[in-house]
Design a binder for these strands. Structure first.
Lengths: 208, 208
DNA sequence: TGTCAATTGTCAGCGGCTGTCACTAGCCTC
DNA sequence: GAGGCTAGTGACAGCCGCTGACAATTGACA
C-alpha cells in the first residue's frame, strides 16, 4: 500500500502546483515570486525547488501532462495508419480527453487560462517552444519505428513531424488569441487548418 | 560626420559583443558571467546591461543580424514568385551572403561556433525558438501583403511560413549536429530537405 | 572656455537558484 | 515499542542576472 510519506509528498507537490498556477493566472508569472508560492503553501522556498527544477517547470507542468498524453495517443494508433493521419487523430483525441488528465490536479479552466499566460509571457513561451521541439523529436522516433526507419538516416519522419508541429503552433496561437477559448473551438480550428495546409503550399493564394 | 562619442559607443558595443561571443564559444554560455565579460572589456557590469537587454541578447545578437538579412531578402523577391519559392530563394541567398553581414563584427567561423552553442544550451535554444516565431510572424505579414491578403483573416500565409520554418529548423538542427559544419553543407541540406517535404507528407515511407 | 547633455561607475537591493548542514518525522527491524 | 536509519525539510549563506538611483566624468557645442 501507499506509505504515508509518499502521500504527504504528493499532497505537497499538488499544493505547490495548484497554488503556483493560481497565482500565475491571477497576478501574472513575472509578478509572482517563488517565495510567495512557498509561503502560501507554508513551505520553505528551498522545498519548492526540491519539487520543481525552477519556477518555469511549475508553470509548464500542466502542459507536460497534456503532452505526455498526446505522445501516448500516437503510440497507440494503428500501425497501418498513414503517419500524418495518425498525428491528426492523436491530437484530436488528446483534446477530447483533456479533462481526464488535468482534472485530477486542477480544474480544466485553470489549465486553459494558464495556457494563455504561457503564450503571453516571453520567457514561458520560449521554454514552451523548446519543449515542443523535444516532443517533436520523440514523436519522430515513434513514427520512424512504426515505419521501420532510422530517424537519423532518413529525414522524412522529422520533416513530417516538424511540418505538423508548425501547423499546430499556428493553430494554438490563433486559438489562444481568439475569442472562443473552448476545447471545441480548438478542435474545429485544428481540423480546418490541417485541411488548408496542402492548398496553402501548392495553390495560388490570390485566385481563391 | 560621425561624432567621437558615437564611434566610442560603437567600439564599446563591438568589444562587448566580440568578447561575449568569444567567451561563450570557449568556456560555454552558463560558465561565463556577465562580470567576466565586462571586466575583459574593462567596463562596469552596469554598462554591459546598457548595451544588451540581457546576457541572452548578447548571445543571440549575431543570429539577429542574419535574420534581419533574411527578412530583407524576402522583401526584395519578385512579386510574381510563388510564396514558398520566394522563401526558398531568400534563405539560400541569406546563406550565400552571410559573410557580408557577419564579418563586419566577428569572423564567420565564430558565428558558426556560436550557432552550435545556442543549439546545445537549453535556455539559449528556447530564446532562439521564440525569436524564430516572431520572425515567422513578420514573414507571414510580408507574404500576405505581397499577395494582397489579410494575415489575420486568412490563415494561409502563417501556415505556409510555419511549415517552411519547421523544415528549416529540422535542417538547422541536422546541420549543427552533423560533421560538415560549413555554409555549403547548409545550402545542400536546405535544398535536399525542401525537396523531400512533399513526398514525406504524401507518399508512403516504407516503399522507398 | 564654460555650460549642457550623454555616458559611465558605484552602490544598494531584489529574485531565482544552489550547496551545506542540522533537525525532524516517518519507516523498519529486532 | 524502543531504537536506529533515512527521506524530507528548514535555515542560512552565497552566487548570478538584472534594475533603480545618483554621482562623477567626458564629449558636444555655443
Amino acid at each position: 500500500m501507499e506509505t504515508l510519506r509518499a502521500r504527504k509528498k504528493q499532497r505537497t507537490r499538488d499544493a505547490l502546483l495548484r497554488t503556483a498556477v493560481e497565482l500565475f493566472t491571477t497576478r501574472g508569472y513575472e509578478e509572482t515570486t517563488v517565495d510567495e508560492i512557498a509561503e502560501a503553501v507554508d513551505v520553505s522556498q528551498r522545498t519548492f525547488f526540491r519539487y520543481f527544477a525552477g519556477k518555469e517547470e511549475a508553470a509548464l507542468a500542466l502542459q507536460e501532462l497534456a503532452v505526455l498524453r498526446f505522445v501516448e495517443a500516437v503510440r497507440e494508433r494503428p500501425a497501418d495508419e498513414a503517419p500524418v493521419q495518425a498525428l491528426r487523430q492523436a491530437v484530436l483525441e488528446g483534446w477530447d480527453t483533456l479533462h481526464e488528465v488535468i482534472e485530477a490536479v486542477v480544474p480544466v479552466e485553470l489549465y486553459l487560462r494558464m495556457h494563455r499566460v504561457i503564450e503571453s509571457t516571453p520567457v514561458l513561451l520560449a521554454a514552451h517552444l523548446r519543449r515542443n521541439e523535444e516532443t517533436e523529436d520523440t514523436i519522430a522516433r515513434v513514427l520512424a519505428e512504426r515505419e521501420g526507419l532510422d530517424v537519423d538516416a532518413d529525414p522524412r519522419p522529422r520533416l513530417a513531424v516538424a511540418v505538423f508541429g508548425g501547423v499546430m503552433r499556428v493553430t494554438e496561437r490563433q486559438w489562444s488569441t481568439g475569442e472562443d477559448f473552448s476545447v471545441e473551438a480548438m478542435r474545429a480550428l485544428t481540423i480546418s487548418y490541417l485541411e488548408q495546409v496542402g492548398p496553402a503550399l501548392t495553390e495560388r493564394w490570390r485566385t481563391r
